[in-house]
């Protein structure tokens, strides 16, 4: 059994959220490496060294020629074999925001049992025509077999995108994705009853921030191992990042200086090494943000299945 899964967090070419994505996997108990795409392309490193791959958010190649397309092409043409083996080995992949766009443009999402690298859906300009950063409510499909979202019901998370409208050429495709449990999470009206938020009718802006078909925020492949979503769960790794945390904040008297036991961070190794790990599990849980559940799920999955 693998106790500490190894995670490859891709970097380079305008990927921006690699540091925080690495940090949250670290907090979830994984060993993380931010790895430049070209290290994999050159063959100097190989995806097979890892158990989980994350394509973080950002603006790879400036979103020029369509978000995710140029990085998607690099992956389609330069990492095809490594990705095929990675998927065949049953290892989880997540794409967040621009990472989701990349996975869709490479054809890994919605995808087939065996990847054919053909694009069958797209993420395009929001109906508002604007890039926006705002918080949304998501509801998760209890019938989905997506390993990343097991046990999740609802979550408040930020979206930060200009091209987040999920579209397919024919809504029948969505019917079949739905019956396969591939429609993992959707934007919902937070005032709806738990379990009843998801609807096929497009909800108004800003509840559905981009005009996605059926309010789709995130989907998985038929195996449930590859997951992509536009919102940023890593951005709510701690409760103090929630816009309302102070309106409902925990008033514990004792405040540890650092409530997380595992801290992986930017910049030099030296600083990392000099920082003592502070193991205070109860406080960590108390201050942990809702988004962490997604990363815990993947780490648990690897521990149990690989």
């Amino acid at each position: 059994m693998i106790h500490v899964p190894k995670v490859a967090v891709l970097t380079g070419f305008g990927i921006n959220c690699d540091h925080e994505t690495a940090a949250v996997f670290g907090m979830a108990g994984a060993e993380v490496e931010r790895i430049h795409v070209n290290h994999l392309v050159s063959g100097e490193r190989n995806l097979e060294e890892f158990h989980i791959m994350a394509v973080p958010g950002g603006f790879s190649f400036g979103d020029h020629l369509g978000s995710g397309r140029l990085l998607g092409n690099r992956m389609r043409f330069q990492l095809r074999e490594q990705l095929t083996s990675f998927v065949a080995a049953g290892k989880p992949i997540i794409g967040i925001c621009n990472g989701f766009q990349v996975l869709v443009k490479t054809g890994l999402l919605p995808g087939n049992e065996i990847p054919d690298f053909e694009q069958t859906a797209s993420l395009t300009l929001n109906n508002s025509g604007r890039y926006e950063n705002r918080w949304v409510s998501l509801e998760f499909n209890a019938d989905s077999h997506c390993i990343w979202t097991k046990g999740l019901e609802r979550m408040e998370v930020p979206v930060r995108h200009g091209e987040g409208k999920f579209v397919v050429p024919d809504s029948k495709i969505l019917d079949s994705m739905d019956s396969d449990g591939q429609l993992v999470c959707r934007y919902i009206d937070p005032s709806s009853k738990p379990g009843e938020g998801m609807t096929d009718e497009t909800l108004p802006f800003p509840i559905c921030p981009n005009g996605s078909m059926r309010n789709i925020a995130g989907i998985c492949d038929p195996t449930g191992l590859i997951f992509g979503l536009m919102p940023h769960p890593e951005a709510i790794y701690a409760q103090w990042l929630h816009p309302h945390f102070r309106r409902t904040k925990i008033t514990s008297v004792e405040r540890p200086t650092s409530p997380f036991s595992h801290i992986i961070d930017d910049d030099t190794e030296m600083v990392e090494a000099s920082r003592t790990a502070r193991d205070r599990e109860s406080e960590r849980v108390e201050w942990e943000g809702a988004g962490m559940a997604i990363f815990h799920n993947a780490v648990s999955y690897v521990r149990e299945h690989l």
Binding site: N16, C17, H19, E20, A23, V24, G57, R130, Y131, E132, N133, R134, P158, R160, H232, E234, A235, Y237, L241
Partner: peptide, 11 residues
């Protein structure tokens, strides 16, 4: 709102 004010997960 059209500025990303939360990237890096620190705001």
């Amino acid at each position: 709102r059209q500025y990303d004010h939360e990237v890096i997960a620190q705001t």
